[in-house]
Amino acid sequence: MALYLASGAPTPLFIVWQDEWGFPDSLVALGFAAYAFTFLVALLVGGSLSDHLGRKPVIVGSLALALVSIAMFMLAPSIEWIIVARAVQGVAVGVVTAAYTAALVELAREGSRVAPVVAAAAPVGGLGLGALLGGIAVELWGPDADDILFMVVGVLVVGGMVIAAVAPETSARIPGSARSLVPSVVVPGTARQFFLRMLPILIAAWATGSLFLGLAPTVVHDLLHLESGLLDGATASVHAFGVCVGSIVFGRLAVPTALRGGAAGLVLGVGLVVLGVAFPSIALVWIGGVVEALAFGAAFGAIFRGLSPLAPEHQRAGTFAAVYVAAYLALGVPAVIAGQLIAPFGLLPTILGWTVLIVLLAGVGLIIQLRRRRETAV
């Protein structure tokens, strides 16, 4: 959670840095996408590393790398440094994520629903808390917010390192760590059908996350015409906290029910966000954000609960890595495309086109789940 908090904290600060250094909106999107893409590369290269080295060394090492990125944020003299710091941060989070998820599943009792729920809730809860703390820092300290915020975040990451260091190891070391660095995505045959059926919902959910966590401050300032660091951070955190709550509250639903409800909730929630952006209303954006985020949490937790029993233990971290590869492609690609479209077409048409595509994709996911339900009934 500390690591993801550090990842969410810069979101509201981009507006402060933009005012200070005068860079275009496209670089705001690039700063977010740099994190998503290096996360993806790190996940592809190191996603299975903990299956060979053990969970603890990978987790502690990733937290140490996160401290390097925090130092880079504090010393940054330009947006280029910020983008590089985000890239380093993405590597740290990308390497740790599959190891962290696998460790939670292995620490829990056999068949426990708690570990998959926590695995889905803690990262997005950390992102939400980081964005909210970033917004509060901007509101209270203005241009000095970044130094104060990153000092606090650094202390939390060190605390995470201590906890990880004393936690029990859950996976024995096995040969092949060098070979595991060859980029690969592991989706065992036993899990492949489930993976493909849930993919449209996963992509729609994380593309929505890209909108809230990547461009929320820009939307608040330029489309809703509100000047508040606190609102910037709160709008981003509405999504993340909603995902966290949805993962926990709906964690007891049957996997097919949670996937169907998640897809339907994404359609409704993102539809409300479209209305809130088209007819400027922060209230509608927030209500839609809560609805889509609760749906995201229900579906994302169900994905882990559905995959856990289908993936053999020696391929579990690699299987979870495959989920995050798809998720972070959906997180990073829309941000890059949107950043390039804002200048020629404008912010409002870009955001509206983005959200309509999400609604269509979530609708496809819902249809797939409903057809699967009918096939099972027959």
Results as ranks from 00 to 15, higher is better:
169 E>D: 08
86 R>N: 07
377 A>D: 13
121 A>H: 10
233 G>L: 07
297 G>A: 10
302 A>K: 06
162 V>P: 12
254 A>F: 08
208 T>W: 12
305 R>H: 14
107 L>R: 09
308 S>D: 15
198 M>T: 13
48 S>N: 12
246 G>C: 12
358 I>Q: 09
150 F>M: 07
55 R>F: 04
251 G>F: 00
272 L>F: 05
164 A>T: 04
372 R>Q: 12
2 A>S: 15
91 V>T: 03
169 E>Y: 12
292 E>A: 12
48 S>C: 06
283 A>E: 08
166 V>K: 12
174 I>A: 14
79 I>R: 06
134 G>Y: 05
261 G>W: 13
171 S>E: 05
13 L>F: 08
225 H>Q: 08
182 V>E: 06
122 A>M: 14
196 L>H: 10
98 A>G: 06
102 A>R: 03
14 F>D: 04
283 A>N: 09
181 L>A: 04
329 L>K: 04
23 F>V: 01
92 A>V: 05
103 A>C: 08
136 I>N: 03
104 L>V: 13
232 D>T: 06
64 A>P: 00
94 G>M: 00
122 A>V: 10
358 I>W: 10
92 A>H: 07
376 T>W: 11
66 A>S: 01
280 P>Y: 02
91 V>A: 01
306 G>V: 01
336 V>I: 14
346 G>T: 07
57 P>G: 12
210 S>G: 14
206 W>N: 09
237 S>G: 01
363 G>M: 13
41 V>Q: 11
31 G>L: 03
166 V>D: 06
93 V>I: 11
303 I>T: 11
155 V>D: 08
58 V>R: 02
173 R>E: 15
30 L>E: 00
285 V>A: 13
221 H>C: 00
